[in-house]
């Protein structure tokens, strides 16, 4: 079975690095980007099996916009997106209940930062198996 390829996009390089190590230790191939534009370019070039996005990158809602853009693209509408965020407390938005709403928050999974390695791996495997 070929290794699944995952793109991780987050503006916090430390988080990106930690997530990368966790995923690589579980035999995934990981590519990273630190902002929305690079992330989109990387995803379009590499066509990964899954994308891990942060909600709030350099700009507020960059992650949302990226997810919406990808789901509109016929090449990527079936690619699962896992969203990581520490933003919930700031906005008061209950992301969990909105995750999966195709118009508002078109993501397939949602996890609070910091994510325990086991939780991250379990969620990634679950999304890839679908």
């Amino acid at each position: 079975m070929p290794q699944s390829r995952i793109v991780v996009v987050d503006d916090d390089p430390d988080i990106v690095e930690a997530v990368k190590v966790v995923l690589e230790c579980n035999d995934f191939t990981v590519m990273t980007a630190n902002n929305k534009e690079d992330g989109l370019a990387l995803i379009r070039a590499e066509k990964p099996d899954l994308a891990v996005l942060d909600v709030m990158m350099t700009k507020w809602q960059d992650g949302f916009e990226m997810a919406r853009e990808l789901k509109k693209d016929s090449d990527f509408k079936d690619m699962p997106i896992l969203m990581l965020t520490g933003v919930e407390d700031k906005t008061g938005l209950e992301f969990k209940s909105a995750a999966g709403d195709p118009d508002w928050l078109p993501v397939n999974g949602f996890l609070d930062k910091p994510v325990e390695p086991e939780t991250l791996i379990a969620e990634v495997k679950k999304l890839l198996a679908k």
Binding site: E17, V21, D89, K113
Partner: peptide, 23 residues
Amino acid sequence: THDIKGHLAAIQSSLDVVSKGML
């Protein structure tokens, strides 16, 4: 506190990688 939380998440993630023996 929101800024602190962001840094804490990065510290926690980095510590997890080391403590779980991934490095």
